[in-house]
Design a protein around this nucleic acid. Structure first.
Lengths: 123, 123
DNA sequence: ACGATATTGATAAATCATTATCAACATTTT
DNA sequence: AAAATGTTGATAATGATTTATCAATATCGT
């Protein structure tokens, strides 16, 4: 049976309050304020648990490590700051991507990642 | 001074005839027809050379390894087949992505990758 | 509170793409 | 052709993320 632990609560809370996708290391850093002894293994284990439960989704990034965010945010895309490397959510792009496909190809999903400077790093 | 070798010619030829981005391993496999003894180190070394020379561009993929294609193909996007993993080019999407940015963010570039079945795998 | 057992944390190990090493070899220059 | 040196290929090493191990600990049902 699955148990409720301070570590798991802290990881869920970190994902909820960040309002942006976090890497495993970011989650570790954020949760250490709540559970000082937490280790990286627990972060990875819990992320796997939450992803398998459908509570969290992995965000794959071109040339980067996966980030994680709460599932059920609706379809949207991501922005990664080229200076601080943080990832942010941006709204869906709306264009009809299926029109781009060569004949005979079928589309299941798409990933769009914008790169640039976030507000904090733009100055 | 830089020398012309069978290996380098084979790698250039593979990238030219593929007409789609290739991974290092795909390039190795394709060039072994021409130079049976070619090794993976030579593929990586030559790719680095060609990228530095501006002749080839690396295509970063979400959750995947970089693929390589000839530079100066103009702006476009990519499609990766979820079955055979091959990557294909698709035209630029055209929508105004800057509209998606939060206030204060600036955009430098973007990566769009479509996923699905290619014509050969769709059946 | 107790017992059963799920979970944790430190760290060793696994994974895997990429790079470094270096003797053998190929190419270019003389 | 011979010398000089750039290149190759096998493989060891690297680097970085992720997973496995296992004794110690925390949680939950009784």
């Amino acid at each position: 049976m699955q148990r409720s632990t301070r570590q798991r609560d802290a990881i869920r809370a970190a994902l909820q309050s960040a309002r942006r996708p976090l890497s495993a290391r970011e989650i570790l850093a954020d949760t250490q304020a709540e559970v000082a002894s937490i280790g990286i293994a627990t972060v990875y284990r819990t992320l796997k648990l939450l992803v398998d439960a459908g509570e969290v989704e992995a965000v794959p990034l071109p040339g980067g490590i996966p980030h994680y965010e709460l599932a059920k945010l609706g379809h949207h895309h991501h922005f990664q700051c080229t200076r601080c490397e943080r990832v942010f959510d941006v709204p869906e792009c709306g264009s009809n991507l299926k029109e781009l496909l060569p004949r005979g190809f079928t589309m299941e999903r798409h990933e769009l990642v914008l790169y640039g400077r976030c507000a904090a790093c733009a100055g």
